[in-house]
């Protein structure tokens, strides 16, 4: 980038400086704008394609605005897109994922809040070791646990079921929720817990009445984080569920890659948009919390 023209604080002549500065600003805005196009491009293409008929797709261009917009692809994607011969659309899988995401978000969040509190409000021997053990869990390479977890779920009679998937997301969500809450509670002044103790509150009362209400913002972050991770998960879904039990991203991939006849690109795009919509909405309406989680939990990417 031409950063050299951004500004020159020691001007040889005022004219040159003004020109240089102008060029600098132009370069900055031009670059930023090009990247705006780059990032918005795929979204734009997905939306427009999803509103076109298959004829228009074949005859028109990639970036053309739909001339005869239709929401039929969205309806098809929702209720009768096919995986092989099974033409149910995305809707049952959407519901699967909601059934999955609610407990798999709330349970680790609740436990993580208590864990984070327990890790910070009192000093006890081995505290740092316990935290390090749990923290490393955030970096578990999931390939290394797929085989044992599949075996375990099989032994528990949960192979291929959503409940098995819930269990997987709960246990591997715990390190993250614990880390988030721990990093929040460690910034809470220790005087608060001391004051509560002098006021007569016990360990759990201090948590319930003093700490938990304070942690509301981080709780939103954790819930959003956990929700987004689970909603967007593919690996666990594809490894531990099958058939009608798969979560939305697995279903989406199945719909898009099932190859019977001509590819209905418009329905593919509508399906992808439908699957992406919940997390996109979260981003639009709670972007602040989403980004906070992203920055704090960047390890999971």
């Amino acid at each position: 980038m031409n950063a050299a023209t951004l500004a020159s604080p020691m001007p040889r002549s005022a004219v040159r400086t003004d020109f240089g500065r102008l060029l600098g600003w132009a370069a900055v805005y031009f670059t930023l704008f090009v990247f705006v196009l780059f990032f918005l491009g795929p979204l734009f293409v997905m939306i427009t394609t999803s509103l076109k008929s298959i004829e228009e797709i074949r005859l028109g261009t990639l970036i053309g605005i739909p001339r005869h917009p239709t929401i039929q692809p969205w309806i098809d994607a929702w209720s009768n897109a096919c995986v092989g011969v099974d033409c149910t659309g995305l809707s049952p899988f959407f519901l699967n994922t909601i059934y999955l995401v609610v407990p798999a978000t709330l349970i680790p969040t609740a436990i993580g809040a208590l864990n984070g509190y327990a890790l910070t409000q009192v000093n006890f021997r081995g505290q740092n070791i316990v935290y390090a053990i749990i923290l490393f869990g955030c970096f578990t390479p999931y390939q290394a646990i797929l085989i044992p977890l599949a075996q375990t779920l099989g032994k528990l009679g949960l192979a291929g079921t959503i409940n098995g998937l819930i269990l997987a997301h709960v246990v591997y969500g715990l390190p993250f929720t614990t880390m988030f809450f721990r990093n929040f509670f460690i910034s809470v002044p220790s005087d608060l817990a001391k004051a509560a103790r002098i006021d007569g509150a016990g360990f759990f009362q201090t948590f319930r009445y003093v700490m938990l209400p304070m942690s509301l913002p981080i709780m939103v972050v954790v819930i959003i984080w956990q929700f987004t991770s689970i909603w967007n998960d593919f690996l666990f879904g594809v490894a531990f569920t099958s058939g009608r039990n798969v979560p939305i991203m697995v279903a989406l991939n199945n719909i898009v890659s099932s190859s019977t006849g001509e590819r209905p690109y418009n329905i593919d795009m509508a399906s992808a948009m439908l699957a992406a919509l919940p997390t996109l909405l979260v981003y639009v309406f709670a972007g602040k919390y989403f980004v906070r989680g992203l920055m704090a939990g960047s390890v999971k990417g």
Binding site: D191, K194, A195, Y209, P213, L216
Partner: peptide, 17 residues
């Protein structure tokens, strides 16, 4: 809590919520 004392902290330690 059983010592029958009360304490005022430097940071005040008021419960923010």
């Amino acid at each position: 809590k059983d010592r029958d004392i009360a304490m005022v902290f430097q940071s005040y330690a008021l419960y923010p919520t």
